[in-house]
Computed example of a mutant assay.
Amino acid sequence: MPELPEVETVRRVLEPALVGARILHAEIVDPRLTRPFDPGIVAAELVGERVTAVGRRGKYLLVVLGPGRVLLVHLRMTGSFRVAPRASLPADAHRRALLRLDNGLDVAYRDLRRFGTWELLEPVDVEPHLADRLGPEPFARVVTGRWLSDRVARRRAPLKAVLLDQRVVAGLGNIYVDEALWRARLHPARPAASLDAADGARLVRAMRAALRVGIDRQGATLRDYAAPDGREGTMQDEFHAYGRSGEPCSRCRAPLERTVVAGRGTTFCPRCQPAP
């Protein structure tokens, strides 16, 4: 599933293509994309709107329209965009939607697994909708070591499971949690409530460092992910933990191990990240 760096990469590519453009035609061919709302009605609502901004909140893309309405896009496992000059995109059995813009570009949305969602929100609904689902951004000033340790103080679940909860900190998924925990030298199965302010500060620095590398490398290209301009990210070449079970730790050279935490495959260093 695309995480914060992958979604931020998508946002950065979409922004110059969309901002300032008016939607001349919208086609949504998959009713699951806008469920429970009729895709034809949602498409009709988009026609004529001018895009004023393209934002990101956690793993969500926010396409801001003229009157302040927002098309909220969640890519989930295999959602992706493609941008190309009008009528130049090849036929695609996995295309779920198409936006035709007055600047001569087409923006296609494809989704192999069909788990992605589009929601058209009125201005007054945007912030409450996001606040119900997301904690602060990892780079937000409020996210400090003390704040994080207080935030998880009553959580007995494993630390990795708590970090995957988008209501704690938004944007982290399986990849960047593994990478952050490796950088912070914290075991993924450690009880979250055991985190003190010093541990929290180390973890906040580690999260931010892993995410910055991911953004700089335009995300990790695993399976279906690619940016809207077709470029593939290279974060997979920078992994210290995720997916490297059995390989030597790049810090201490001990073999990395794989376990399952919160139902997710998890890679860690048994020497650098001692068990609780």
Rank of each mutant, 00 (worst) to 15 (best):
R167P: 07
S88N: 08
E122V: 07
A254Y: 01
A210M: 03
G58F: 07
W118M: 09
V51D: 00
L89Q: 03
R12Y: 00
C252N: 06
R82P: 00
V143F: 11
A275C: 02
P188L: 11
T259K: 08
G40C: 00
P276L: 08
D30Y: 14
E49P: 01
L134W: 09
G246W: 09
I215D: 12
A157T: 13
Y60H: 13
I215P: 08
E49H: 15
H25I: 01
H129F: 15
Y176K: 06
P90E: 01
R57C: 07
S88W: 10
G55K: 10
D132E: 15
L121W: 07
R11V: 02
R253A: 14
A189S: 07
V19Q: 02
F268T: 05
V13Y: 01
A262W: 06
E137T: 08
G263E: 15
R11H: 04
P67M: 04
H240M: 13
A153Q: 15
P39S: 05
C252R: 09
G214A: 06
F115G: 13
A53F: 11
P274H: 03
D106Y: 06
V42Q: 03
T78I: 12
V47S: 02
A26K: 04
V29A: 15
G40F: 04
S149E: 05
V63I: 15
R133F: 09
D178L: 11
P85H: 07
R110M: 07
K160E: 08
E127F: 09
R264W: 14
D102L: 05
I215W: 10
R264P: 05
A153N: 14
G135K: 04
G230R: 05
G40K: 07
P123I: 13
A131W: 01
